[in-house]
Design a protein around this nucleic acid. Structure first.
Lengths: 123, 123
DNA sequence: CTAGAACCTGACATCGATGTGAGGGGCAAA
DNA sequence: TTTGCCCCTCACATCGATGTCAGGTTCTAG
């Protein structure tokens, strides 16, 4: 498929897809005239990239973790594994932090409701 | 306390604290000469702001949820409550998404380990 | 009183991901 | 062949939070 279809299927803008390629997150095969062509594999790849972005990783980090054109040797897989573990930990911390934040929001909502009850009584 | 101490205690830069005030997230009392002064309350307030930022809210949204100089009427507390519920839901979705992402990372790490085992056998 | 640290405002710089527009090819249907 | 849509590259613009610098004032320790 061409870039427009990949964009439509993933919900990611054409601009961003080209950017991912520039950052070496995404590969593509080119037709004779230079147009990018993709397969089902790339749909999954783009979804993966989105997932990593949502987890707060930068394109730089994603490229380190899982470069798009990798012939993994033992060394770099070693480094990558460590990197992944590190990011996994960061992510775990972030998750518990968000859960605490959600609780804080719940607390705020309670206070708000309480406050309204008071207002109604008084007014 | 003055702004430098608040910055030191919260780990937020002086620049950012002034920015929060400009965005009406944070209040301050001014001395005769114009210097900002804060209390323990503001330490908590800044921590709250950081928490909301970490949850992905913009300063605009934070100001809507919990303005720093609020005399809450029934109407705006009504709107605020709805807004909070909405952000709470967004946050919940984000959390499950991150958990799925963490699982994806775990999967990648397994693949990596598997791959290294194979490499060792072969090489 | 004075030096140095901390504060003030205002403005411009930065970063990463994305938008947008110009100028120009590629390709399919009428 | 022409029309219209999709694609290409290059480059500049944008956004929010923060950094940084300049030029000036205030506070505090010696």
């Amino acid at each position: 498929m061409r870039i427009g279809e990949l964009a439509a299927r993933t919900g990611v803008s054409v601009r961003s897809l080209r950017y991912y390629e520039e950052q070496e997150l995404l590969s593509s095969t080119r037709s004779a005239s230079g147009q990018r062509h993709y397969t089902e594999y790339h749909v999954e790849r783009v979804e993966f990239i989105q997932r990593m972005y949502a987890a707060g990783l930068s394109s730089r980090t994603i490229a380190e973790l899982l470069p798009c054109g990798d012939a993994p040797s033992e060394e770099n897989s070693d480094a990558a594994l460590e990197r992944m573990a590190q990011e996994r930990d960061r992510l775990s911390e972030h998750i518990v932090d968000l859960i605490r934040t959600r609780e804080a929001l719940d607390g705020l909502m309670d206070i708000n409701r309480e406050h309204r009850k008071t207002l109604r009584k008084a007014g």
